[in-house]
Nucleic acid binder design. Sequence first.
DNA 1: ATGAGAAATGGAAACGCTTTCACATTAAAT
DNA 2: ATTTAATGTGAAAGCGTTTCCATTTCTCAT
Lengths: 351, 351
Amino acid sequence: MRRKELGPDKHVTIKDVAEAAGVSLATASRVLSGRGYASESTRERVNNAIRELNFRPNEMARMLTSQHTDSIGLVLKNLVDPYYGHLANGVLDRVHQLGYHVIVCATDENEQLEREHIEMLMRQRAAGIIAVPTGSNQESWQELINMGVKTVFIDRQVSGLGDVDTIQVDNVRGAHKAMSYLISLGHSRIGIINGPVYSQQYADRLKGYLDALTEAGIKPDQELQENLSSKSEDSTQAINRLLSLPKRPTALFMTNSSIANSAIFTLREYHLQIPDDISLIIFDDAPLAQINNPPITVVAQPMAAIGHLAMEQLDRILKQSEQQIQQPVQRIIISPELIIRSSCSSPKIKR
Amino acid sequence: MRRKELGPDKHVTIKDVAEAAGVSLATASRVLSGRGYASESTRERVNNAIRELNFRPNEMARMLTSQHTDSIGLVLKNLVDPYYGHLANGVLDRVHQLGYHVIVCATDENEQLEREHIEMLMRQRAAGIIAVPTGSNQESWQELINMGVKTVFIDRQVSGLGDVDTIQVDNVRGAHKAMSYLISLGHSRIGIINGPVYSQQYADRLKGYLDALTEAGIKPDQELQENLSSKSEDSTQAINRLLSLPKRPTALFMTNSSIANSAIFTLREYHLQIPDDISLIIFDDAPLAQINNPPITVVAQPMAAIGHLAMEQLDRILKQSEQQIQQPVQRIIISPELIIRSSCSSPKIKR
DNA sequence: ATGAGAAATGGAAACGCTTTCACATTAAAT
DNA sequence: ATTTAATGTGAAAGCGTTTCCATTTCTCAT
């Protein structure tokens, strides 16, 4: 009387298969997994039974004995932002090819939420996790790692955590590429509207900006630099200041897409022609950049590729730990790519 | 000697907890789950043990006994398309609130892939699935449902499958809204560039177009209608035809965002002013529509809300089946919303 | 006191699978 | 023909929980 009366027929188990094939449980399991001896004839009988009974092994039971799952946790801010969309998609591609499956968690950059997700993934005994961490919850992450959950971070790190495999975009290099391009076009008064520099990311992009200028023998002008003071600050004001400068910059470097967004809208009010009156370049390939008229030159972070890399790396770690090999932690740094469109030209001769 | 030498210390089990607390396994389990008797003092001792040992129940083991998981499968095309991004995000919101977790699968509209994912979800014994099905794999879906996996489809159905709960957008109504708006502005020569009508979706949008016209006493003009013949067909040609008509339409209704995309680009070549020379309206709120200059009026499908609804519905079904209640299958139809921006105006007096 | 029912606890079976171990068979090698 | 090794098979012991059942210990009315 323990059988739930409701619902479709009780699931078919390997025991049913074994009975149907007239072999023992052990034998059925052997042909199912392909490991161990089994004569051709048995193999066939069992496989027939499997097919006829429509048997699907219960992964839960399987994991319980084998003590490892095929679950990968993917923790990121959300899925709406195409930045994360591409990342997630990249991960998904590989996940499937490599035989895992993903549990996706959106944190919305909320620490509490992130903690709950980490907790859940621990209970699910996820084999590994790929995350764009919020930066806090150091304790939870540490526990997770102690539990043996292999982890790969993307783009960000969690301080005080001991080394963790990480895949990062080279922000300095990316900003440098953008700037070199602008400089090669003849620009020297290049404005930058940057995110908050307390974030490593933006500090790096600023560094790239400064380095490129200096290397080209141009003295960076403090007047042309705007660093927002928080992630949520509206950049309109900053843009207005730059555009109202007596000697307006001939080019503008916007270090993220939300800045670019307000910039574009603000620019329209000034009725400036792009690229004739001002050249534009964005760090990050937002939809905006492709759609805008004219399309905007960007430094693109290859998010899908990063997703691929992350999953491949995770897989490697997982395989290794299975064989008791302990590889040193890696930090993979990949370089963003300059996509030249139509928003930059040589600066017009000063009137 | 069975203990894996590698890796972090073996997981702590409820048995360890019980020992530490000096109680039996059964008792520990009781306080863990909060079900059944347990004196205040034991409760406390066990909880202390749990905390000190950093115990996390193994959900796999738990599911094995309880015979049900908290896994929800989410099957959709990809995560890059913001349409699906919003949907997924909506689902994720509720999933977390309701205490489940999601396994996300991207099909890329590939039947083979879809089948593999369904297979995987069966083995994982997913409690339920939310899917935007490709439309094929009827057999796999049927099996899934037979296994007792509760399913909610979004936007599409799978033919020959017996009723399945579905959440749909009212495409007729949406198209009708767009058209009514245009008509109210005074348009009567309204062109439509539509997806392939073998897809119910587009058949419905066409119907909305036709209905609205007829109701307004305007005789639909075959000349103004373009229905692509496949999902991948480029719409540039269709647009060119419409724009080169001797009597050019005063407004254009584009029934999906990829059509809108090519349309916008093509339109630029004609140097037409929007909305002065031609009014534009799109079915679907693509990034393009918001960013374009001027921003484009659209009929928006509330994908996040749909995600919410889908998950709530699934939860309801799950809860019900737990209590042996069998509710009839529902088909929830929700109406898209007209978002008025700046791409439509009254038609200019004919010259 | 005493017996009845409630409260607290532990033993053990069950969930579906894998894997070790031992035994039986068969084939190969002397 | 006999030893040796390679094959094929089944019994049984887990894996970490929950839950049923039985037992013991309290609480109170009587």
